[in-house]
């Protein structure tokens, strides 16, 4: 999975906001390839190469840029995607060699859904880009489920659930018991700290309204937007 970062002018403010976000969830960028979408920067932006160096200094692994203005200097070394011209600002699928373990579909009934009838254990990473993932069991703390579509967990969700990977903002996350470390839909994410205590331990669904993640209990008695 690749994340897309889109710096905005003024760059200093944007970097401050980024730092604040990294501080909230320090491991968020760990091991994840990042594509930098520079299209939002004005063409008069000075020292873009310096910006890339500063992101690199924060431990963010940039694998390419897109939307760069032709007049900018010093981007050659970051250029693999830039050379291909612009692309939609969507996560781009890149094999992640740092993943320790990939669990292959145990019983994939159809092409566009993956059913797992075993708990997802700590350290396991389930990646299914083609569609929905259903887990009949729990997702442990330190495990992650990444789906192109929605994620359904018929146990306790204690790890990370990342839905809508391929830019599907209608994807949702459902779980029987919410104890998640992180929820993400189409790049919008919420860490455990930001989730309402009233929703902990309850059956919950998460969805996107615009750029905001919404959470509600499945019986509708408790609703919180982030």
């Amino acid at each position: 999975m690749a994340l897309v970062l889109a710096p905005e002018a003024p760059v200093e403010d944007w970097l401050d906001a980024l730092d604040a976000q990294v501080e909230r969830s320090p491991a968020f960028f760990e091991g994840r390839p990042v594509v930098l979408d520079l299209a939002a920067l004005p063409s008069t932006q000075p020292n873009v190469a310096g910006l890339l160096q500063r992101l690199h200094g924060r431990g963010i692994r940039i694998i390419g840029t897109e939307g760069a203005h032709p007049s900018w200097q010093g981007l050659e070394s970051w250029a693999p995607l830039h050379a291909n011209g612009t692309r939609p600002a969507r996560p781009i699928d890149v094999p992640d060699e740092r993943r320790t373990e990939q669990v292959l579909p145990a019983s994939s009934q159809e092409n566009n859904s993956l059913l797992l009838d075993q708990p997802v254990r700590s350290g396991q990473s389930i990646v299914f880009e083609k569609g929905d993932v259903t887990v009949v069991g729990s997702v442990a703390s330190g495990a992650e489920v990444i789906a192109g579509g929605s994620i359904h967990v018929y146990g306790t969700l204690r790890g990370r659930a990342i839905a809508g990977l391929t830019g599907n903002n209608r994807a949702r996350i459902f779980c029987r018991k919410l104890e998640a470390e992180l929820l993400a839909i189409d790049g919008v994410y919420l860490t455990a700290d930001d989730m309402s205590a009233a929703l902990r331990g309850r059956p919950v669904q998460a969805w996107l309204t615009g750029e905001a993640m919404m959470l509600a209990t499945l019986d509708g008695t408790e609703e919180r937007k982030r």
């Binding site: 373990e101 669990v103 075993q118 254990r121 700590s122 350290g123 396991q124 442990a140 703390s141 330190g142 495990a143």
Partner: peptide, 13 residues
């Protein structure tokens, strides 16, 4: 408990 969970995953794979 979390480390045990990790080990169970390895036992199964």
């Amino acid at each position: 408990v979390r480390d045990s969970d990790r080990i169970i995953g390895l036992l199964d794979s």
